[in-house]
């Protein structure tokens, strides 16, 4: 019936690479947060070094997409999928960068922790990690319901960020006797919040690849 088995196989391969890249950035987030929590500089270094691989992966998928456009001249669903993939990998690459940033910050942090005071960072990281995982899953599985859920979850992360911010300003206000890395904590929280935003972007492209609508606007 269909004369496009080769094309379909290529699209499957593209999906597989997206899943792989998703796995890489999830690991990077996980490790960077762990390194931060445990003051594990070796692990942090691993994350920082690993970002180059994420970048390579982005280039590889980009090439794959462009060659699919040249050779298959995709239309309709195929066109939307491939062009969305091109956008999604940018977001994924930025997520990787943010994980690297967290890792590098954590290496600079010395002295005791303030987790007792800034309680919400671990929760934030868990939440962001889940969002990234679900976003990639939603994209490759064309799961619109999941994508919608994630977009809504973003508020949770935003609220958590506000909590963290409040906690940190509390710390600063009280002039608590801690080291001078307090601001870095805020940065880490901000990176996690960014990661969640990128996850939302991925979900929005997932929606586009299925419906042709991006943020409820028909692009074409």
């Amino acid at each position: 019936m269909t004369a496009r088995n080769a094309f379909d196989a290529e699209l499957d391969a593209l999906n597989l690479e997206l899943v792989k890249m998703g796995g890489m950035i999830e690991e990077a987030i996980e490790n960077s947060v762990a390194a931060f929590k445990n003051q594990d500089n070796a692990l942090a270094q691993l994350v920082a070094d690993g970002d180059a691989k994420v970048d390579d992966m982005e280039k590889r998928i980009e090439t794959r997409c462009l060659s699919l456009i040249i050779r298959q001249q995709p239309v309709a669903k195929d066109l939307r999928l491939i062009s969305a993939a091109l956008k999604v990998i940018t977001d994924m690459e930025r997520i990787g960068d943010n994980a690297e940033d967290i890792a590098r910050l954590s290496m600079a942090i010395t002295g005791e922790h303030i987790f007792d005071v800034v309680k919400h960072i671990p929760q934030m990281s868990e939440c962001a990690l889940k969002m990234v995982h679900d976003a990639v899953t939603a994209f490759v599985n064309h799961d619109l319901t999941l994508a919608k859920t994630i977009i809504d979850t973003d508020d949770v992360v935003d609220n958590l960020f506000c909590d963290v911010k409040a906690e940190i300003s509390e710390v600063l206000k009280r002039g608590m006797d801690i080291h001078n890395n307090t601001v870095d904590f805020l940065m880490i929280a901000k990176y996690l919040e960014r990661i969640a935003d990128h996850a939302v972007n991925i979900c929005e492209w997932a929606e586009f690849s299925q419906t042709g609508k991006h943020k409820d606007k028909q692009i074409l």
Partner: peptide, 19 residues
Amino acid sequence: RIFAAPKNPRTENYITGRF
């Protein structure tokens, strides 16, 4: 619109070469 996001699945199937 037809080539980016056709409304009818039969259009979609035809232009993407699914039959």
